[in-house]
Each structure stands twice: as C-alpha cells, then as structure tokens.
Computed example of a mutant assay.
Amino acid sequence: MKSKFVLVLFFLMAISSSVYAAKTAFDEYIIGPGDVLEIIVWKEPDFTRDATVRPDGRITLPLIDDVMAAGKTPMQLKEEIQKKLQEYIDLPVVTVIVKEINSKFYYMIGEIKSPGAYSLSKPMTILQALAVAGGFTEWANKDKIMVLRFKEGKRIVLHFSYEQAVKGKDINDFNLMPDDIVLVP
C-alpha cells in the first residue's frame, strides 16, 4: 500500500513539474508604471503598505526611500526590498503582491465598433480582442487585419485574416503583447 502511495506521489510530482516547464509570456509578470503593489513586511506594520508604481518606475518605502520596481518581477522586487531592509530589521520577510495591473495595454483602431486602449491583464488573442471591442463596422476589411508590434526596437507587422479563421483555415490567432496595436482597415 505504501509503495502505491509513493508511486502516485511521484507521478503527480512529475506531472506538476512538466506543467511548470511550459512557460508563456504571462508566466513571469513584469511590474510596470501605474501598477498597484501591496508590500507586506511580516510583523512590521509600519513598513506594510500599498504602493503605486510612479511613471519613473519607482516606489517609495519608509527608511529605504525610492526603489526601482518597473521592469522587475514581484520576486525580484521582494528580494531587493528585503536586502535594503536588513539595515533596519533583523531578517525581514517581505511579500510583494500585484493588486492592480494598470501598465499593460493593447490598442484597437480602425473599422471596429469600440476603438481604444484595452487592459492586457491576462492572455488575449486577436479573436478575443475583436470580441471585446464589439466586432467590426460594416466597412471593415476582415481579411487584412494587422498587428503592429515593437520587437527588439523595431516595428514589425503581423497579419491576421478573420475570414480564414472563421472558415477554420490558417487560424493564426496569436496572443497580443503589451503595446500591440490591432489595426482593422
């Protein structure tokens, strides 16, 4: 009986490690300006607070002043805050929680019913983005949709055909990235 339990436990551990091995762009959240963070310092209520990441990417905390938050994961920021607090607190234990995502957007323009900026707080495909924006106007060219994206400092153009996608052919429905512009001519 004990060996069956060990075998099942080993199997579950193998499955869970393979699930974590398949990472996507949304697995490691990168903090950005406008995000609201909850900084918790265990057993230190004077240091525990919410902090909004300023446009310059920093947050301000008691005694340690400005800390660069933008461009870091919550775990990286936690480690930096813990290191800086060691001057004032013995063995600080810090938790960083992203309470509000306000720094990631994609933009919908052209012949759609509701153009504008949309929050990218979870993975979003082009088809999902078109649905959120209310669909097309009557003059939309659904076969020539473009996604404008910055990659390595250059603007690239990715093409998407709604007509092909709804026919079940050549479905290239990919995830949008922060600052993508979906252009529906």
Rank of each mutant, 00 (worst) to 15 (best):
A129R: 06
I145C: 08
A140Y: 05
L127S: 13
W139M: 12
S103R: 14
Y88S: 10
I89A: 09
Q76R: 13
E100A: 09
K99Y: 10
I101F: 04
I145K: 08
E87G: 09
V93M: 10
L85Y: 15
Y88P: 00
M146G: 00
E111K: 13
I112E: 03
Q82S: 13
E111D: 09
Y106S: 05
W139Y: 15
Y107C: 04
K113S: 05
Q86A: 14
M124H: 02
M108G: 08
T137G: 02
E79T: 14
I126M: 09
A117L: 01
P123E: 08
Y118C: 05
A117T: 07
V147K: 11
I81S: 14
W139I: 02
E87H: 07
K99I: 01
K113W: 05
E80I: 14
Y107L: 10
I126K: 05
V93H: 12
K144L: 03
K144V: 00
I112K: 07
T95Y: 15
K99V: 07
P115I: 05
M75Y: 11
D143V: 00
F105R: 15
I109L: 14
A129S: 11
Y107F: 15
A129F: 01
V132H: 04
T125Q: 09
M108W: 12
K122L: 02
Q86G: 09
I109P: 02
N141E: 13
I101P: 02
G116C: 06
D90F: 09
S119A: 11
E79N: 14
Y106C: 08
E100M: 01
L120H: 09
K104R: 15
F136R: 07
V132A: 12
K122I: 00
K99S: 08
E111S: 10
L127V: 01
L130A: 05
S119C: 00
F136E: 03
Q86E: 14
K99R: 15
A140P: 01
M108H: 12
Q82R: 13
Q76W: 05
L130D: 06
A131H: 06
D90M: 05
Y118A: 06
F105I: 04
E111G: 05
L148W: 00
E79I: 04
I89S: 07
K122G: 02
M108R: 06
I112S: 07
L77R: 09
P92S: 11
Y88A: 07
V96N: 06
K122H: 05
E80W: 11
Y118L: 10
E80N: 12
F105E: 12
A131R: 08
L127N: 08
K144C: 00
M75P: 00
L148S: 02
K122A: 10
E100I: 04
N102L: 15
M75W: 04
T95R: 12
K84C: 02
F105Y: 15
V147P: 03
V93W: 09
K113C: 01
I89P: 04
G116D: 03
E138R: 12
Q82K: 12
K144A: 09
E79G: 01
L120W: 02
Y118T: 05
Q76D: 15
E79P: 00
Q76N: 12
G110N: 14
V94C: 11
